[in-house]
């Protein structure tokens, strides 16, 4: 009986919260938000950064520091998860290998995933996508084989090296730009021709660092969790 009372109270509370939120949102007309900063960015982004994809211009240019923070959060989550799982029993070796189809498909897919991931990372300033999306695909390229044959060891050492140096490279790019200008993370190199692969200054470099870092982090994280699960 007590359980039902608790559930009912929760439902009642949430209904009230919902009504409150609806009332608040009604005060904000949909589709008519002031978007002062958004409009200004749309107008200024091509001239400021040279990137065609304005979301990229925001992520790496206007709000590059947010992106550094975001990469840091992934890093610290992976480090904490690694520390938490560090003492867990590793049972990867006992887990069964996957069937023939998954096994061969995993290794067949590997080069394609690699190329696709690299393409998406490098074209982040031109088309939708970028370091995070491409990095996730790169991570999949290395993680799918682990799923197919859990016995095969995942090279955590290499992942850690790539992760560390890519992260440091992001901040170093930011600090290097401090020398030329008077602000952290100022884009340098020329803006180049709009739409070309080598354009938008140092933004593609930042995306490359993010892609490598996210790729190695995700792959390492998933390999660790799956290893610990197999052992549990």
């Amino acid at each position: 009986m007590k359980g039902y009372g608790h559930t009912a109270a929760t439902l009642l509370f949430l209904t009230g919260l919902g009504i409150l939120l609806i009332a608040i949102l009604q005060a904000l007309p949909f589709g008519l938000a002031p978007m002062q900063v958004g409009q200004a960015i749309v107008a200024a982004a091509p001239g400021d950064t040279g990137a065609d994809n304005i979301v990229t211009a925001i992520l790496l240019g206007y709000r590059g520091l947010d992106t550094l923070g975001e990469v840091t959060i992934l890093f610290v989550a992976a480090a904490a998860a690694g520390m938490v799982l560090g003492g867990a029993s590793r049972g990867g070796a006992q887990a069964e290998n996957a069937g023939f189809i998954l096994h061969s498909a995993a290794y067949l897919l590997f080069p394609f995933l690699l190329v696709l991931g690299a393409y998406i990372v490098l074209h982040g300033h031109l088309t939708p996508g970028g370091g995070f999306q491409g990095g996730a695909i790169l991570a999949a390229a290395f993680f799918v084989p682990v799923l197919a044959s859990p016995a095969s060891p995942f090279n955590h050492r290499t992942a850690m090296l790539v992760e560390g140096f890519a992260g440091a490279a992001f901040i170093m790019i930011g600090l290097v730009s401090l020398v030329g200008s008077d602000a952290f993370l100022t884009p340098f190199f020329g803006k180049g021709e709009a739409g070309a692969l080598f354009s938008a200054g140092s933004l593609p470099l930042l995306y490359l660092a993010i892609g490598l870092k996210v790729g190695s982090e995700l792959a390492g994280l998933m390999a660790r969790v799956s290893g610990a699960e197999a052992g549990a």
Binding site: G38, Q39, I41, V42, D66, E70, I73, L74, F132
Partner: peptide, 13 residues
């Protein structure tokens, strides 16, 4: 507005 899209990308990660 591109800004919320960029914010959401960050929030998802």
């Amino acid at each position: 507005d591109p800004l919320p899209q960029a914010l959401v990308l960050t929030a998802i990660v």
